[in-house]
Design a binder for these strands. Sequence first.
DNA 1: CAGGAGTGGTGAGTGGCACTATCCATTGTA
DNA 2: TACAATGGATAGTGCCACTCACCACTCCTG
Lengths: 221, 221
Amino acid sequence: MRISELSRRSGVSIPTIKYYLRDGLLPAGRPTAANQAEYDEDHVRRLRLIRSLIGVRGLSVSATKDVLAAVDEQQGDVHLLLGLVLGALPVERSGRPPRRDGAAEPAGAGAAAGDAAEDVAALTAEMGWKTSPNPPAAQVVAETLETMRALGVDYDWRSLVPYAELADRAARLDLDQLRDAGDPLQQAERAVLLTVLLEPALLALRRLAQEHHSALRFGNG
Amino acid sequence: MRISELSRRSGVSIPTIKYYLRDGLLPAGRPTAANQAEYDEDHVRRLRLIRSLIGVRGLSVSATKDVLAAVDEQQGDVHLLLGLVLGALPVERSGRPPRRDGAAEPAGAGAAAGDAAEDVAALTAEMGWKTSPNPPAAQVVAETLETMRALGVDYDWRSLVPYAELADRAARLDLDQLRDAGDPLQQAERAVLLTVLLEPALLALRRLAQEHHSALRFGNG
DNA sequence: CAGGAGTGGTGAGTGGCACTATCCATTGTA
DNA sequence: TACAATGGATAGTGCCACTCACCACTCCTG
């Protein structure tokens, strides 16, 4: 098929497809002439996957590119694939520059960062989690603890243990679903979907539950 | 204090503080002259809260403004506050324009959207969750289900029940921590922190657990 | 086999966002 | 009284995810 059919089938506009091609998100079609190329079903699948990662999950184009590269390169080894995918993901949203001016962090953030990192180490030890040396995710947790404390909330790693247990169960659920899949490429895609695409849905479920329990406890009408 | 001390105490540059003042994120100081105003501790606290929501959680400035407005207006009623806060939150990241061109959604998304919405209704019924009529969070779940199916993963609401149970427990943990707080303003702030700021940390915990369990199951070195 | 629609490739343009820089008259301060 | 600092305002910056315009070419219909 050619680009207009690819656009129709995927719901992505032609200029956007061209943009993804240019940026290396989508592999080029098989050229049939100087200005003609042939696309196939794989391109449609890939394009839908791209739109899901960017549109539903909100990944940046460059993070999406990294994730897709991991899918392509590590279709066989799920563990390696997940490592690459988790490494490619931004921790909050697309890379935010830490600080350009010389202003100090909220009074002693350096020391607090060290403390928080130790807290996270204690938490992962408590959970028995073995991870790569310095995962970005650990830094997110540390930063959150730090922020909580800077804002006057008395919070340490022990407060997070119950959440960590829930996270542990969620992760096991995730991996349980990676068993039955077809070819390696499809399994790799499924791994990405289950770990990456599910994230907003999980937060949304928590919000629904919060609304429900908040009504139970504090509701007055 | 004046703006330079506010900047030093909060770690936010003076131009940025001015920008927040202009945008209504930060209330104006008490004016003492035509070009002089007095800021206090509340401004420092508010500024740190703003930086946490924008910098750690990644909220947009306008979403942050809405959340802060909810905090200010509904300090007394936690349930009402949470409702406003959850309503003000973006579902994935800052508001993304749905679609500008006339291209169709990936073939039959309209019907799929209806199906997915019914799925979410079934899920919330199963969980016994009572929520407001059409919460944005429910739409996120529906959209995720829809996307999964469009990508060929066999996924329905039953697959989400175990996750919903985890979310239910997480929400109860959240609300348990809203008991002991000082004045209403501090309690409102804590509610925001526990629900909003914790989100990236919870996802990060899941990623750490995923890495651990992935190594257990698929690791080979 | 003419001619218009469609194609790929590329460079430049758009709009939104979160700041950031510059200016100004005025004011506190040494 | 010199001089840095202040508040307020306008304009500019950098980034990002597209989107537009143009071009030489090719396909396809009549």
